Amino acid sequence: MTFFILLLACAAAASTGFLFKPGPWYESLAKPSFTPPNWMFPVAWTVIYLLLAWAGYRLTLIPGSQVVLALWAAQIALNTLWTPVFFGAHHIFAGMVILIVLWLVVAAMVVMALQLDVITGLILFPYLAWLCVAAALNFSILFKNR
């Protein structure tokens, strides 16, 4: 049951992508050459959300994981916030600020998870890697579209 609750939280975060689609505004922005193709975003996020739910579930089984689970909750809230700010409100700078805080929370979560359980930490690592790509993309878009 816990896994499904965490998966539901991930689905709520993912739903912002359906509510606030990139659309013409995003297409009109100058983007860097390393911008992934549009089809890659839903594929990557689907995998990441499944991994997040799995890692969160594993953390609930580990004694002493309360702080990491609090970070899990914080990251899903920040993750949910980014899409309406960036794609909905078209606030590139605010999106960058949210993304920096999100990256820091996820980095701390990965480090702490690795200390509790190596497998769980490794399950979270693709999320951190994808956030590096997202941050570089967001920063480049901010820089190119002043």
Rank of each mutant, 00 (worst) to 15 (best):
G95Y: 01
R146K: 12
A73M: 13
T35H: 07
L142A: 12
T35V: 11
Y57E: 01
L7A: 15
L78A: 05
L99A: 12
A11V: 07
I62W: 08
G56N: 09
F87A: 00
A113L: 09
F18D: 11
A94W: 09
G121V: 01
V105Y: 03
F125K: 03
L104E: 03
G121K: 05
P126Q: 07
E27L: 10
F143V: 14
K21H: 13
F20P: 04
Q115F: 05
I98C: 12
G17H: 13
I100F: 08
S33E: 04
L104Q: 09
F34V: 06
A108S: 14
A13N: 11
W39G: 06
A70D: 07
W39I: 12
W45S: 02
V118L: 14
M96Y: 10
I100Q: 02
V111Q: 10
S28G: 13
V133L: 15
H91D: 06
P37K: 12
V106T: 14
F4D: 01
P42N: 06
I141Q: 12
A55E: 00
V105S: 09
P126V: 05
W39L: 08
V111K: 12
P84M: 05
A135F: 15
G23R: 10
A13K: 06
T83P: 02
H90W: 01
L7R: 01
F20V: 09
W45N: 05
P37F: 05
A89L: 15
L102V: 06
L128I: 07
I62E: 05
V43N: 05
L137Y: 09
W130A: 11
Y127I: 02
V47Y: 04
W103F: 15
G64K: 12
A11R: 00
L6D: 01
H91V: 01
W39P: 02
G88H: 10
F125W: 13
L59M: 03
F34Q: 08
W25C: 12
A89Q: 14
A12N: 04
W54R: 01
N79H: 11
V67H: 08
F139S: 08
A9K: 00
F143C: 03
A12E: 00
Q75V: 02
I92L: 12
A136R: 11
Y127E: 09
M112I: 02
Q115K: 14
Q115C: 05
Y26M: 10
A9P: 00
T60W: 04
